[in-house]
Design a protein around this nucleic acid. Structure first.
Length: 757
DNA sequence: CGTCAAGCCCTTTTT
DNA sequence: GGGCTTGACG
């Protein structure tokens, strides 16, 4: 056994490495050397004679997987990291794609499926709703997709949901779900959730295939287990059933993805599930100062029901946490960039600094402040590169070339650049498709049979079909990059995209960047390059891109994206009630707990310096509002904090917020109220006015506001006259209720005496 | 068929 | 303040 494997590991980490047989639960706090333990564990397995291909490691991002691959390569002194000497490592989604590309035909689907992103999903859903004559104002595509996503995260098929559907409304959702799946199938497409779900289905329905994978992957490792959803849990359980060598690693305090179905119980109940599981806690922190750890602990300690855990470090010489107050959101951004520059002057490189915020919308402020101060920056998230229209257009061409069954891709590009094939023509063709029961591509290839389309238009369609066919033929002998270059020339994309504006210029640059990405695949065969590229487009995460962005720059990103990363200097902006915690979470205990975990994750990214910022007033959606400072700041012990402010008046808010008890159990502000307030009283620009406003906050309509926040479609309510019923729709203050008596009524929440059950 | 202007509803968070 | 849909017009 090489010394390297155990070199520099503490006792607990060693246990985590050596305990390889049977189920293992590793509770690993922030900065506890978790990735290190995991990589050494895998290297240890391999040194003990386990074949690399018998090991599966599921990580949260591709970046984490790549990092681990590199580290293992070094540990084992492998010569060529690209060789098959490494285990399969990747995200749930990429592992499932791998499984499905190989075996999905066992459950009657085509292995050339495309993966639909959020954008594609929405388009498809719009089509479903239009077909079913449902007004998109009544049921938004996103809402419908959110419901379906919930079902899929719970691994429920439409049939299974249908069995539980008791209300009309649920019945309708099931119909939508069914139709949506049918269309996906018709397009030979899977959405993100399907990747997991179809893998589970494959394993359940074809035991022989499951057994093959069980016998291959005998040692299973799952990182960030606190963020797995039920479908992922099922997948792992099925794989682990036979050999039971399952190691899960995570930190319940860092569970921040409940909104996409993550179920914290998976990790909390692991030991109940696997009774003989070994349990290992990594509590020593190698990242942060004691001050940062203590502060973070004060935040997370307020969450109930966590396993006992106390992080510690030998770094007791740290700075205090800086809490900085500014006048408004612009001053906040200036302050953030200023403090970045100050630290830069003291030798902290830009790459070691980060600004974190709750919502993507906040990024623009920091972007502008950086530009003004000439500080190079990079933004993660927001308008994603692969989601940009011009990039998606080119990708859609490739999809259409690869898989003409992909109707969505065809529709996207049939008139890009303009071929004078407009909506009326498309509508005619689609009508023809459903009448004749043929798919779009077939219809296009037989366009001459459609007399109701004028001949010139038919000719243009035929030209389009010829174009796609021509490039289909090129796939086998041209690399994806060359093929795309030729395509761009052929369709005269440059002229179409450029319009003498700077936006046009940047659109063309984005396409250039796409060509750069394609170069990565030069080493592969033409066919492989094509498929690998499309896969990357579908599955890269935002954080994955940090790898390729080596230049010296300040990073701007959302709090959700920062998990797993670390920086010397961390700035968390917008620490205000209604911003962070987010307004939608203010009146929901579970969501507040998650916001708290999010704060905990953000704070524990910091190695040396942590700055928390809030603004006394902030303009949002075009009007100005004053928020209380975040309740999380109240939880910081004064002796750990250095307060700063840009205003002499500032003491007021501080004093009020930290020395007086809060009004009631919950904050009196929050955007739920604020939104209302800003309409009634648009200008509340100063902290003192805001306080005044807060004091009369417990009015009658406060109660109704609470009800408004507790209510959603499907909520059960009680009315003194009509009895009990179910909310069928909610639009602002207005709700429709289907009472159990059969009556339907419409109410204004601000007036009606409704009670949530 | 394409463009432009007015009006709409917003915004969590992401693989 | 912004992105998207809708409706009128060239």
């Amino acid at each position: 056994m090489s010394d390297l494997i155990f070199d520099g590991l503490n006792a607990e980490q060693k246990r985590a490495v050596e305990t390889v047989d049977g189920p293992v639960l590793i509770l690993a706090g922030a900065g506890s050397g978790k990735t290190r333990a995991l990589t050494h564990r895998i290297a240890y397995l391999i040194e003990r004679g386990v074949e690399p291909w018998q090991i599966l490691a599921v990580t949260f991002t591709n970046k984490a997987a790549n990092e681990m691959k590199n580290r293992i390569t070094n540990l084992l002194k492998l010569s060529d990291p690209n060789q098959k000497q490494l285990p399969v490592m990747g995200t749930f989604h990429s592992v499932c794609v791998r499984i499905l590309r190989r075996d999905i035909e066992h459950i009657g689907r085509n292995r050339d499926f495309v993966i639909y992103d959020k954008d594609d999903q929405e388009r498809l859903m719009k089509e479903v709703l239009r077909e079913m004559n449902i007004d998109v104002k009544e049921l938004k595509p996103r809402t419908a997709l959110a419901h379906i996503g919930r079902f899929k995260n719970e691994a429920l098929s439409a049939e299974e949901v249908s069995a539980q559907a008791t209300t009309d409304w649920m019945g309708r959702v099931v119909k939508i779900y069914n139709r949506y799946q049918a269309l996906l199938r018709q397009h030979n497409a899977l959405d993100f959730d399907d990747l997991i779900l179809e893998s589970v289905r494959l394993f359940r329905e074809v035991p022989a295939v499951l057994e093959r994978y069980q016998n291959t992957w005998r040692y299973l490792n799952v990182d960030e287990y606190q963020d797995t959803n039920h479908a992922q849990y099922l997948l792992i359980s099925l794989l682990a059933e036979k050999h039971r060598n399952l190691c899960v690693i995570g930190d319940p305090d860092q569970s921040i993805y409940a909104f996409r179905g993550a179920d914290i119980r998976n990790i909390l109940e692991f030991q109940r599930e696997y009774k003989q599981a070994a349990s290992i806690k990594l509590e020593r922190n190698y990242r942060s100062t004691q001050q940062i750890l203590d502060a973070a602990d004060c935040i997370i300690a307020k969450n109930p029901g966590r396993p006992q855990k106390k992080m510690w470090t030998e770094r007791v010489d740290g700075e205090k946490i800086i809490v900085q107050e500014t006048g408004d959101e612009k001053a906040e951004a200036r302050e953030a960039v200023q403090s970045v520059m100050d630290r830069m002057a003291h030798g902290i490189r830009l790459n070691e600094q980060v600004v974190l915020y709750r919502t993507n919308a906040q990024s623009r402020l920091f972007e502008e402040a950086c530009m003004k101060a000439s500080v190079p920056y990079r933004i993660l998230g927001g308008v994603k590169f692969y989601a940009r229209a011009e990039v998606k257009d080119i990708v859609a061409y490739l999809h259409a070339i690869h898989n003409p069954q992909d109707a969505l891709a065809l529709l996207r590009i049939i008139n890009v650049p303009s071929r004078k094939i407009g909506e009326t023509t498309i509508a005619k063709i689609q009508a023809w498709c459903s009448a004749e029961q043929i798919d779009l591509w077939t219809a296009l290839t037989q366009i001459d049979g459609m007399q109701e389309i004028p001949e010139p238009t038919r000719n243009r369609i035929a030209e389009f079909v010829a174009l796609i066919r021509k490039f289909r033929d090129k796939r086998s002998h041209m690399h994806v990059g060359e093929l795309t270059k030729e395509l761009l020339e052929e369709i005269k994309m440059e002229a179409w995209v450029k319009d003498d504006t700077t936006e046009g210029e940047s659109r063309w640059q984005n396409i250039g960047e796409l060509l750069t990405v394609m170069q990565k695949y030069q080493g592969l065969t033409p066919e492989e390059s094509f498929v690998s590229f499309l896969e990357e487009v579908a599955l890269v995460s935002e954080v994955d891109k940090l790898d390729t962005m080596q230049s010296e720059a300040l990073t701007l990103m959302t709090l959700h994206l920062c998990k797993g990363l670390e920086f010397k200097h961390v700035i968390i902006a917008g620490c205000e009630e209604g911003i962070f915690p987010h307004s939608n979470a203010l009146f929901d205990t579970e969501q507040l707990e998650e916001e708290r975990r999010l704060m905990y994750v953000g704070m524990t990214r910091a190695k040396d310096i942590l700055c928390l910022l809030f603004a006394r007033s902030r303009s949002l959606w075009g009007s100005v509002q004053a928020n209380d400072m975040s309740r999380f700041l109240d939880d910081l012990p004064p002796e750990l904090v250095e307060r700063k402010s840009d205003d002499v008046m500032s003491g007021v808010l501080w004093k009020f917020s930290s020395s007086e008890p809060r009004i009631g159990a919950r904050s009196a502000t929050g955007a739920g109220r604020v939104e209302k307030r800003s309409k009634l009283q648009p200008y509340r620009q100063h902290a003192d006015l805001s306080i005044e406003f807060n004091q009369d906050a417990l009015s009658r309509d406060d109660m109704n506001q609470d009800i408004g926040n507790d209510l959603a479609e499907g909520s059960r309510i009680r009315h003194p006259v009509f009895g009990e019923g179910t909310v069928t729709s909610k639009r602002g203050d207005i709700v429709d209720v289907q009472f159990d008596s059969g009556e339907k009524k419409r109410f204004a929440l601000s007036i009606a005496p409704l009670e949530v059950m």
